[in-house]
Design a protein around this nucleic acid. Structure first.
Length: 569
DNA sequence: GCCGTTTTCGGCCCGACTGTTTTCAGTCG
């Protein structure tokens, strides 16, 4: 699937053209096409083969031609041109806060700056400050921008941001009276990674709230401290912005700061067509404010139902809601259990009994213990003898602890030769069998997974792409083929909720749903303190437009057991 | 470069802030 690759090419072209001072609307057209293409659930190559490129929103004559050229020849002339004209090291400098394309162009043209070293040099020798429209303040800002650029890390994982923002809100609430406070931005949309964290609040004394915010513990730097907006960098290097808004505008501001950008642009364009104006203060007809107190009102003003934040990516949700439809996506409280947990039997930290008690406390009705199998030595995989003993233990604990059902499962390894790590005789004894790749990431992965799915005893494929968000691209796997096979063999696909996995991701979930596949949610928890990450998995499911019915963990235990047996019959 | 229940040409989301200028360009979210 070349969607990501092609999207990146257009993104880079946009950067290059922007730098060269091209018409900003043209630049934007490339960016829009890039955003749309990366969000497509269908393989762009298929769309191309069917001759339907022009039906993709944002793809017109010019961009369609370029895609066609690339898919036919493997090259794109205009792309190569754009890259050769502007060195990559220069484009990267646009990431520096306070340094945009116009200024960068000037610096490059007048002073010959081509990379970060050059830039530092012209700052220290004073030649930058001598450029027209360049003053002391601007140079200082660029200096600060460079520092931030150097020590800031990439985007942070959703799971980490989630924790961080909870801590901040909790501490702030203790210090000062706040009426309402909530995270906005990509965190609220449950993006798998988050850049800055945006928080929105209302209260009687905005100035005081901002003051307290900018003096929280765990702050490395205060960037801004005004009357209604404060901005800090935490010791982890994460920028957090807090805005205090008026009660009467809270909904409009929340909608505005939740984004996504493309969702909002489309909303505002539609509003404009209808003679309305949407901004962060409300929805206006001429001068009159007709909505803004709640998000519900904002959507209502365009005759739409409220759109859940996780759907706001301009992936067709606006068109759907405009028709008066809505999507019934899964809710956090629909989840009745966790279907992938490790115990001390392999590399987990807690005993099965401890897990069961914690799960019960959590309000779950069941949990599946799925420890590793024998060949996964580094994770203490169980031998066939051991798993037989483990099944016995699970049955005993089930008899002992009422109110929670423990399923005997296994995360059985799909070995590099394609065989499963346990014999069918063992697999038959288990309530749930999750198959997973842990070795041979480049060895025939697609076929190995497909063969595993053909085994009627395999219920689930765990973390189907194997990616680690922060560090690993994933197996060499044709995920489209896996999805199709999963749907055909009634094998569930896991949404692994471990915060560095979130695998399947949102787009693959949606694609899989279109093929008729079903899903399980599992935290892959090795510690009972990791149960909460189920929220992240539910977030992915919601972003993937999945409903309650699509996910096995939402069914009562009797139905769940029935679904697990279907494939075996 | 895209797009069209006003349009095949002439628009393209909206506002705040900053810094350098005397009315605005650049940057950001």
């Amino acid at each position: 699937m070349k969607n990501y690759l092609i999207s990146q090419m257009f993104e880079k072209m946009a950067d290059s053209l922007e730098f060269q001072g091209e018409n900003p609307f043209k630049v934007n057209a490339y960016r829009r096409a890039a955003r749309v293409i990366v969000s497509l659930t269908e393989d762009i190559e298929n769309i191309w083969k069917m001759g339907n490129l022009r039906e993709v929103p944002g793809v017109g004559e010019g961009i369609a031609k370029k895609i066609d050229e690339f898919l036919k020849t493997g090259r794109m002339n205009k792309y190569e041109e754009a890259l050769s004209e502007v060195p990559d090291t220069l484009i990267k400098l646009m990431k520096i806060q306070g340094l945009g394309p116009k200024t960068l162009f000037l610096i490059n043209k007048e002073l010959g700056v081509k990379d970060l070293e050059d830039l530092k040099k012209v700052i220290s020798d004073g030649s930058l400050a001598n450029l027209p429209s360049m003053g002391e303040q601007k140079v200082n800002n660029i200096k600060r921008g460079i520092e931030w650029f150097l020590h800031s890390k990439d985007k942070i994982l959703l799971g980490k941001a989630y924790h961080l923002v909870e801590r901040i809100i909790e501490e702030l609430k203790k210090r000062v009276d706040i009426e309402d406070i909530t995270p906005a931005g990509s965190l609220r949309r449950m993006n798998e990674t988050v850049g800055d964290i945006d928080i929105l609040a209302t209260g009687n004394n905005p100035k005081k709230i901002i003051e307290e915010f900018t003096s929280l513990s765990n702050i490395a730097q205060v960037i801004a401290c005004g009357n209604t907006k404060g901005s800090i960098i935490t010791k982890e290097g994460v920028q957090v912005d807090l805005r205090i808004v008026d009660r009467s505008s809270f909904g409009a501001a929340l909608q505005y700061f939740t984004g996504s950008k493309s969702h909002n642009i489309k909303m505002r364009t539609i509003a404009k067509e209808r003679g309305l104006k949407i901004n962060e203060y409300g929805v206006f007809k001429d001068e009159e404010k007709i909505a803004g107190k709640t998000e519900y009102e904002v959507y209502q003003s365009l005759n739409m139902k409220w759109i859940p934040p996780e759907l706001r990516e301009d992936r067709g949700e606006i068109e759907l809601y405009l028709e008066g439809q809505s999507i019934e996506i899964i809710q956090q409280n629909n989840i009745l259990g966790d279907l992938h947990i490790h115990s001390v039997w392999s590399d987990g930290v807690f005993t099965i009994e401890e897990i069961a008690l914690k799960a019960k406390e959590y309000g779950y009705k069941y949990v599946a213990i799925c420890d590793h199998s024998q060949s996964v030595k580094y994770a203490g995989g169980l031998t066939e003898k051991e798993i037989v003993r483990q099944i016995e233990e699970i049955r005993e604990i089930n008899a002992k602890i009422p109110g929670i059902e423990i399923l005997a499962g296994s995360e059985v390894d799909i070995k590099s030769n394609g065989n499963l790590d346990f014999s069918d005789k063992i697999l038959e004894k288990l309530d749930i069998v999750i198959a997973a790749i842990h070795t041979g990431f480049k060895q025939n992965v697609t076929q190995r997974i497909i063969t595993a799915m053909e085994n009627p005893l395999v219920n689930v494929i765990a973390h189907p792409t194997g990616r680690l968000i922060s560090s690993r691209e994933g197996y060499e796997v044709d995920i489209a083929k896996v999805i199709e096979k999963a749907a055909n063999t009634k094998t569930f696909l896991e949404i692994n909720s471990y915060f560095d996995r979130l695998d399947l991701n949102d787009i693959n979930c949606r694609k899989a749903k279109e093929f008729g596949a079903k899903f399980t949610l599992g935290t892959d928890a090795h510690h009972i303190d990791q149960f909460w990450t189920m929220k992240l998995g539910v977030g992915v499911a919601r972003r993937g437009w999945l409903s309650k019915e699509d996910i096995l963990n939402t069914y009562e235990i009797e139905d769940l057991m029935k679904y697990l047996k279907i494939k075996r019959q």
